[in-house]
Structures are given as structure tokens and as C-alpha cells.
Amino acid sequence: MSSCSQKLVLDNGVTSLDDGALLTVSGVGFDYQSIPVLDNVDLSVNRGEFVALVGPSGCGKSTLLNLISGLLPPSTGSISANGIVDSPGRLGNVSYMQQRDLLLPWRTISENCQLGLELRNISADTSKALVQELAKSFGLSDVLEYMPSQLSGGMRQRAALMRTVLPDNHVLLLDEPFGALDAITRNVLQKWLLSVLTRTDKAVLLVTHDVEEAILLADRVVIMASDPGRIVAEVDVRLVGSNIESSFTSPAFVELRKNILALLERRGVSS
């Protein structure tokens, strides 16, 4: 059966800044109108690693992604993504998929996916060819000429992810990509995402409030608490040799889920 290595690193014990880290967040704080939203956040994601960030609503998970993407500058501390420390400089160099698909209703799916390449002035022929190639693994080949309004929520979400990953940046941020989907579609897409990203050399950071999703998809789960948002624990959740179908019921999965929920709850009560 599956074995699992489990390691809890509490509070400020996160110090892994090894050479493999594509994304490094160190001592980052963020104040909004002099109210602290994030406090002293340390986080690193290595090449080829998938990290999930879980925490209660309003703990600043999305704010952290906005800081990493370069949309906002941190109030304190520093962020380095693929070696870029300057906040505006990270715009366009960190792939960021927001919660809503944000597909432009007047563009076909293909044109929507080409957007990132188009903004880099890559020729339409080249970007269209790239979209057609990638569409195969995204299951979107047949709907590339459709308008977004003709697609289901799950398909739209895939298209949004394809638009996000096409510029081929090394750091990929996902903000609850399946949050608005029904349970069945969500499950299908989780499996699919795992198969798409499993052989990637990107550093992936996923924000979710779904603990099962975090365990299923990630190599490591980072737990946040709120007021102000901070990292309180890290759990290694690599389920070695397991397949997805049996994961949900495997003893290791259940154990991990229990531990993470306990960590989230403990923080919730104490704060």
C-alpha cells in the first residue's frame, strides 16, 4: 500500500531556501490601509514542486498570490520568482490563474488562449499553432473556434488554465481554479490537472480551501491562519505509489486529512 512521509514544521520553522527554489517568499508582510493583512510570510517552491496553500477565508491567500504575481508590492520582505525580485518586473513572468475564468466573451476560445502570446507580439500564426498543439492535452481541440458563452464551466476553466500556462513561465499560481465548479466536474478536473502537471518542471503554488484537493494535488501543504495572515505549518503530503482512485480512502490520506484539519481548527480556535 501507499506509504507516506509526514513532517510537520510549525510556525516559523520554514527555512528551506535551497538552490532548487524557483519561488522564494521571505519575511513578506503586507498592510492594507495600515491594517496588517500578511505578516512575516516565508515560503519557497522548488522546480517541479506542487505546493498547496490552505487556510480560512480572508487569511490573505489571494493577497499573497497578488504579491507574488507582481500586481502588488509587498510592504516588507522580498519575493523572488525565477530570479526576479522587482515587483512590476514579475508581471508577465509569473503565470497566474485567478478564481474566475475571465475569458473575453468577444473572442473565440483559441483567441482567448492566444492572448498572453499576442501581448508579447508573437505572430498570430505561431501562437495559433501553439494553442492547437496544447489543446490536445487540454481536451479543447474540438471547441477552439467556439465562443466562451457556448462552453460549460469546466471547459471554460480549462481554457483559462491554457491561457495562463501558454506563456510558459516557470512559476505557476492557481487561485482556487475549481472553486466555482460542481463536485463531479471538480473531481474530473483535479485528476486531469494532476496528469497535466505531473511531469512539469514548473514551480506550482495552488490556493484552495479544500483540504482533500490540497492533499490530492500537492507535494506539500502549507497552512495559513488569519488576522494577520501568516504561515503556521507545513505538511509533506507525498503519497508514494498511490493512484488517485484509491487515494480518498487510503489510510494515509485519511490520516493526513485529519492532521491538516486539526491544524486548521487549532489555529481557528486560538486566534
Binding site: 507582481g70 508581471l91 497566474y96 508579447r120
Partner: peptide, 10 residues
């Protein structure tokens, strides 16, 4: 949010 999406695409 759409403006942010454009900005993150550079």
C-alpha cells in the same frame, strides 16, 4: 480582475 489578468500576462 480582468485588468489584473491582462497585467499578469504582461
Amino acid at each position: 480582475e480582468s485588468v489584473d489578468m491582462f497585467r499578469t500576462l504582461g
